[in-house]
Nucleic acid binder design. Structure first.
Lengths: 114, 114
DNA sequence: TCCCTATATCGTAATAATACGATAATAGGT
DNA sequence: ACCTATTATCGTATTATTACGATATAGGGA
């Protein structure tokens, strides 16, 4: 009878293979967080919108999506935490744009792995 | 009082913006499915292992991960459905490797968007 | 100071994802 | 036909995510 080995879904998983890729646990976690953040239709739509509308504010995004302001705000928080976007406070509003440095890092990592 | 507009999380989200990126709803769904699939530490570990161990069988993956065979099988199914990997039956076992064509498509799309 | 606008956060209900053990299915050998 | 090895699927408990309405926070006038 094996011990109960269920793990919380986001705990790091360390394979015991003899040869593995050159990715640190921290990088791996950062990568999966970025993948996970865009693995949602609403968040993908937000990022897609930001590509063509850099510098827009939260309200602009709320207008184009069929969800409430509270939910959009929550999604923006997730995208910011994952590193996809960057928000700068402008008066009472917050202006958002893509976090180009992090995105470049993401692409470089993906290119390196695959 | 606004109508209840909560949507199931994976339904396509169509922004009303004047100008959007050249991505069809189907492509968008395929992309988010691929992002979502790798947005999990266990599945990322599986794909990472397959990079260095192409052609390995399910049992090999089960051995290097601290989870049961049933769970690994489930994750492999998700990765296959998303298009990251490809399985070929070899006797009673199934040999897995990366789905290079789909991965190339993914990278091309990401490169195009960002 | 008192509003108005814009965002963020809280609490919560409903849904989805993840993991398990148990069991079914499939291929190959005896 | 039977047994073994390998993988897939089923049913289910637990946890995580997503969405909402309500409320709090912060900036900029009047």
């Amino acid at each position: 009878m094996p011990a109960n080995r269920q793990l919380p879904s986001e705990s790091p998983v360390a394979p015991l293979a003899c040869c593995t890729l050159d990715i640190s646990p921290a990088e791996q976690q950062r990568l999966t967080a970025m993948f996970k953040a865009l693995g949602n239709a609403t968040r993908f739509a937000i990022v897609k919108y930001l590509v063509t509308h850099p510098g827009c504010i939260t309200g602009d995004i709320v207008e184009i999506l069929p969800i409430t302001q509270a939910t959009v705000s929550q999604h923006l928080k997730v995208l910011r935490a994952a590193g996809w976007i960057q928000g700068t406070i402008q008066g009472p509003a917050t202006s958002y744009c893509l976090h180009t440095a992090n995105i470049a890092w993401f692409r470089a990592k993906v290119d390196k792995i695959f």
